[in-house]
């Protein structure tokens, strides 16, 4: 058996050539298992549960924007059938009431959106209605931010945003749904 001299042993280095291969192997594993997380959605704050019946305080009818969705996904906005594409514009008009009409809200702070759906309404319709209502508020806040501070709502400071949110609060009340539609 050949003896390895001490000098030879000193020169021995670990062959790092396979390091790249190992790293590649790991890399490919993570590449395959990666799912770029795109967890986005509509953020909603539910009202706390109470067993008591809500007290029916009379609201002025002009301040209530009622949206009803039936089991065949049709919309009834303040008593008239409406397409979902027009909902955002109508909501904005109702909240801001630019012409000070007597049948629209007194001011944005008093405006209340009342949403009621059926148990047979499809979730897709429900969510797009919700989306339009939130969108209307987002656009109004954006306009207000431009008018007041001369910049977009997204870049406003926390206190500025709070001031706007305070003046244009999103008050959305969801009624207990009707159950005319068939459960599938």
């Amino acid at each position: 058996m050949a003896r390895i001299s001490a000098k030879d042993r000193m020169d021995n280095e670990i062959n790092a050539g396979s390091m790249a291969d190992i790293a590649f192997l790991l890399l490919i594993f993570f590449l395959v298992t990666t799912t770029m997380a795109e967890d986005k959605g509509i953020l909603v704050k539910l009202p706390p549960w109470s067993d008591e019946k809500p007290d029916i305080t009379r609201l002025k009818e002009r301040n209530v924007f009622s949206v009803l969705v039936n089991a065949s996904n049709q919309l009834l906005v303040r008593g008239e059938p409406t397409e979902i594409d027009n909902l955002r514009e109508r909501t904005k008009e109702f909240i801001s009431n630019p012409q000070r009409l007597t049948n629209l809200s007194e001011n944005p702070r008093k405006a209340i959106i009342s949403l009621k759906n059926d148990r047979g309404t499809s979730y897709e319709t429900y969510l797009s209605v919700y989306n339009e209502l939130q969108g209307a508020y987002a656009e109004l806040r954006h306009d207000e931010a431009l008018k007041r501070y001369g910049k977009a709502y997204d870049v406003c400071s926390v206190s500025e945003r709070k001031a706007i949110r305070n003046d244009i609060p999103l008050i959305l009340s969801e009624a207990e749904p009707t159950s005319f539609g068939e459960e599938n």
């Binding site: 959605g41 509509i42 989306n131």
Partner: peptide
């Protein structure tokens, strides 16, 4: 009460 309806 904090809920996020997931959407694309």
């Amino acid at each position: 009460l904090k809920v996020n309806y997931s959407a694309k």
